[in-house]
């Protein structure tokens, strides 16, 4: 049975992530369910003390209404949350990019109903990440894993849950151009595979699959190929829906 988030807050107030009985959105505009659900957790940790489980803890302020006296656009909301409101109890909040995306999505969809799990269990997710998913064979988290692919140590800070979920399902379609694997063969025939760190018209700087920093003059290379296919499989085929949600929860938790 689906229920609005605010009503559900009182039921699972003690949990960081409420993962059961969630309902899929009927109408959530441009906001992704994963971001809205993550925004709920941000709300729980940052906002609930003052605004309350029901969003109406401050006299004259009802966050369930979706209307804000001092903010019209998402940009306004971001500024308001980042700067606070002088001479009121509304403090300035130093949220990272992912948290800000989440809380905005949540505030825009306070009565949003979920019916599918998007953010699962972080601990289970880590087990899958390191085991069945074999993610550490390419990615690095903290001191574990190779350096050649995107370092995920703080990926939960910079990418919203929706973006991480898309990356798990469609690695090639979501691969940022700078992250595309490069293959380089020097004039002397030496071959290097790696990832670009920087590039200009004449030179390219990479970290190779051995974790070495290398810089090349492009006009002296025998080959400089930027692959547009990601070597990462789509985990939509590899993992069950619940496992995906668990891995996503783990990725979201990766904050340095």
């Amino acid at each position: 049975m689906s229920r609005p988030i605010f009503r559900r807050l009182s039921v699972c107030a003690a949990l960081l992530f409420c993962t059961s009985g969630l309902a899929q959105a009927q109408d959530h505009g441009d906001y992704d369910p994963a971001d809205i659900e993550y925004g709920l957790s941000v709300y729980r940790s940052q906002c609930v003390t003052c605004h309350g489980d029901s969003g109406d803890g401050i006299a004259g302020v009802n966050l369930r209404s979706g209307q804000f006296r001092r903010a019209v656009s998402d940009r306004d909301l971001r500024a308001l949350i980042a700067n606070g409101i002088p001479d009121t109890g509304m403090l300035a909040f130093d949220l990272d990019s992912a948290e800000m995306t989440g809380i905005i999505a949540f505030l825009r969809n306070p009565n949003f109903e979920l019916d599918a799990v998007t953010l699962g269990d972080e601990a289970r997710g880590r087990t899958i990440f390191e085991g069945k998913g074999d993610c550490l064979s390419c990615h690095r988290v903290g001191q574990e894993g190779p350096r050649g692919s995107v370092d995920l140590t703080s990926i939960g800070t910079t990418r919203a849950p929706s973006a991480l979920r898309r990356s798990l399902l469609d690695p090639t379609g979501t691969m940022r151009p700078i992250d595309r694997p490069v293959e380089i063969v020097t004039a002397a025939g030496e071959r290097f595979n790696g990832r670009r760190l920087n590039e200009d018209t004449y030179t390219v700087q990479i970290i190779d699959d051995q974790g070495r920093l290398r810089s090349f003059d492009k006009d002296r290379l025998q080959q400089f190929t930027v692959h547009t296919e990601s070597p990462m499989p789509s985990y939509g085929d590899e993992l069950e829906e619940q496992e995906l949600a668990d891995v996503l929860a783990y990725l979201v938790s990766l904050k340095r």
Binding site: P177, I178, N198
Partner: peptide
């Protein structure tokens, strides 16, 4: 800044 992260694709 000193790092080009957008590349020619953008």
């Amino acid at each position: 800044g000193p790092i080009n992260t957008w590349t020619a694709a953008a």
